[in-house]
Design a protein around this nucleic acid. Sequence first.
DNA 1: CTGGTCAAGTGGCATTACCAATTTCCGGCA
DNA 2: TGCCGGAAATTGGTAATGCCACTTGACCAG
Lengths: 233, 233
Amino acid sequence: MPFQSIEPRRLYRQIAEQIRGLIRSGEFGIGARLPPERDLARQFGVSRPSVREALIALEVEGLVDVRIGSGIYVRARGEAPDATPAESEAGPFEVLRARHAIESECAALAAKSATRPQLQAIEAALTEMEGEMAEAKQPLPGDRLFHLRIAEATGNGSLVHVVRMLWEERAGPLFKRLEHHYDTPALWQPALAEHRAVLKAIAAQDCRGARAAMRRHLDQACRRFSTSWDILQ
Amino acid sequence: MPFQSIEPRRLYRQIAEQIRGLIRSGEFGIGARLPPERDLARQFGVSRPSVREALIALEVEGLVDVRIGSGIYVRARGEAPDATPAESEAGPFEVLRARHAIESECAALAAKSATRPQLQAIEAALTEMEGEMAEAKQPLPGDRLFHLRIAEATGNGSLVHVVRMLWEERAGPLFKRLEHHYDTPALWQPALAEHRAVLKAIAAQDCRGARAAMRRHLDQACRRFSTSWDILQ
DNA sequence: CTGGTCAAGTGGCATTACCAATTTCCGGCA
DNA sequence: TGCCGGAAATTGGTAATGCCACTTGACCAG
């Protein structure tokens, strides 16, 4: 496409670009104080509000540090002043409750529409999980795959997307701490059994049974996490 | 230097935070246009330059998209104005099926645990929808808010997250085309009635009834889309 | 139905003024 | 001489207003 959005229209962006250049070129080193806003405005031949807008943009980018009554200082290439506003960061139990509601329906749908290859994929995930447990490792990959395969067996890409997203929230720090107290075979063994029950119901095309089995599984998972949680407190 | 320099000093940061909240709370969905700068200034009780500074901060963060002469629009998570790396782009019917499975459970949970203020929020969304229909506009914002408020009434942040994500997939081009053939009052009227039925069941703490009502609603929505789809082919 | 015109709405930028926090500096005091 | 306190200058923060450029949608002629 030969056309490029010509948008040097926004003055504050041009000014920010110039100041950025001044900093990178070494005109102003780390910790150095930039000229006052009024001077910058005069030098660039623009109004002070425009300079301020540019400076705010640079501040959000973490390039400069504006100190009231003092001046504008070049900040070291590093961290943002306040960490990213970040996502809502749902708690572990919230995620489990959500999965309880969503994945039980997935199981029910999967029982209705799962094809032979999809059933085999679920079974394969279960086998992988067994293998991981045999090696005394946390069977998280297998666990994840099991739930994901069931979502895929619904034939609905959106549901797969949702289940994957919920699983990713497991990356949170709270989850990590819990997992550390949750990796005993004694605790994973019942989870494996519950998985088998879910698969059996899906294979039998038992819609209600699959839903109930998944509900039980996640209920139990919640309970297991609960005890770990209490111990942790 | 003292300790935490509580720096809500900067007005533009407070304003940016408020707008961020408005977006996250579902007040404005993806693609929605925020009120004009002048209105925002009046609503927040600040000057327009301050609002502009806040908007520039949000723009640099990639949260909004300021279009000259047109307005300020909420941008999707993925930033970079250039070509999006192509989403998984689930089909409209897939999304509706997923919502059928998930939001019906949300309604059931909401019936169990909705507080008075949460019920009022749902009702307010319904009222907004009515207002939009009275103006012969597509009641999409109100519709979105209704479903989002129900998810919030479950008290589970993960579920809210999921419902919001599913709604965002509506930004896809396929949906847009369908909506064009779907904006007759004759088609929206039953949707409104179904919404009322859902709210009624939730208010009555009728768990099964709420689930059934939401199921019916999304079933019907699917059917309505279906006819539009056929016409379009 | 297509294409052009026009007016209202909206953001972009400049100007001016005043306020608040900080820094600087000078003069008085020990 | 050295320290301390406060006034003044410096600097960013916010407000208010005005005008321009662009977009949009409706209306009208072809």
